[in-house]
Amino acid sequence: MIQKNKYLIGVIALLALALFTVPCLAMEGPDSIELDSLAELYEPVQFDHIMHVEAAGDDCSVCHHHTTGTPVQDENCIGCHANSGEADEVACSACHPANRFQADYLNKIDENYRLNHVDKVGLKAAYHIKCMGCHEENDAPTGCQDCHTRTEAGDKMFRSGKYAPKGGNKSRKSGH
């Protein structure tokens, strides 16, 4: 009997939760995402989407701007996107290009200068600006390797780890 009651309470609680979160479509989102499209100097990031939905207080627009159908926060966006509804794709990479500074993309900007989205950041910057901005505000980790460990290629470029310069802390003449 007690078992059955517990089960019922559980179902009711779940239903209530579902009701309250209907305005936000986060429940449709993935539980976890592997951010790997740019991984080269750092390992891919295992992004815990569910945890971050909770951290954002179930407000999708904190990260997804106006694309999920929830009211957008940024006053610069409201003018056009107060009621623009849900976008076909909501993944960061759907809007933020990985080739932000390649010639074909830059020429497009040059031709359509009047677009408001002319200053839209690329995918790498979209991740870092959004993630680190929020992490700083909430005292979450902000070190590079707190989120993604560096690969051997990364160690090589940063001249760190086994590629660290030998001879330690000697000062070089500035060349002036």
Partner: peptide, 12 residues
Amino acid sequence: PKEVLSFGKRKD
């Protein structure tokens, strides 16, 4: 990583 540096036509 954060597009501190934006590359483009100077006039843009």
